[in-house]
Amino acid sequence: MTHCQNPKGLPDAAGDSSMLRVGVLALQGDVREHINSLTSLNVAVQKVRNPEELITVNALVIPGGESTTISMLANRVGLISPLREFIKNGHAVYGSCAGMILLADEILDGKAGQETIGGLDMTVRRNAFGRQVDSFETDLNIKDIGDAFKAVFIRAPWVERVGANVEVLASVKTDSGSDHPVMVRQGFLLASSFHPELTNDNRVHQYFVEMAKSATSVKS
């Protein structure tokens, strides 16, 4: 992998399409696992904990964790509006599990007054598969990514409703026989109920990196 030189030699990559720098929102959750998955793809990665660090990246991963905690912490460091701007400006963002909840325009079974960043036209139900004893792993077929993906669901959400512009990449059939989307994409926003960062299979991260590269080239 080669990266073009940033001519200005400055850390501000947000306006520069020549170099992909992926941030991982590092307020709480399995930040390290996402960093490891991205690093294995030879991508420049850095933690994002405040608005100043957000402007130094041109794509972002929102990790798994506790969605109520992450949204409160994002609020306290003044990251909610900058994150909404970041999405509105066409940057690629991927959220896994808690990250999916944070990217949803609407959530069900949230904590009273729970705030999301939004951007993805969907309704997500928190802890939809049940409590921790119901957490599971399964082999998933993912559109455009491949089959037999070992998907790990931990107190996971599912997607209850998607808007017209949202593409469903994978679904899971639940005990009651209904099908629920567990991976979706809208433009340069990607979300999954499961945690690809907990496995050594980096196909989902590879897909996101390609997405992020096209997002930066569209922007230039």
Binding site: G29, D30, V31, G65, E66, V152, I154, L198, T199
Partner: peptide, 13 residues
């Protein structure tokens, strides 16, 4: 993986 993964989600908390 499901048991240890649950703990990974609590990190930093």
């Amino acid at each position: 993986r499901v048991k240890q993964g649950m703990a990974e989600m609590l990190k930093g908390g």
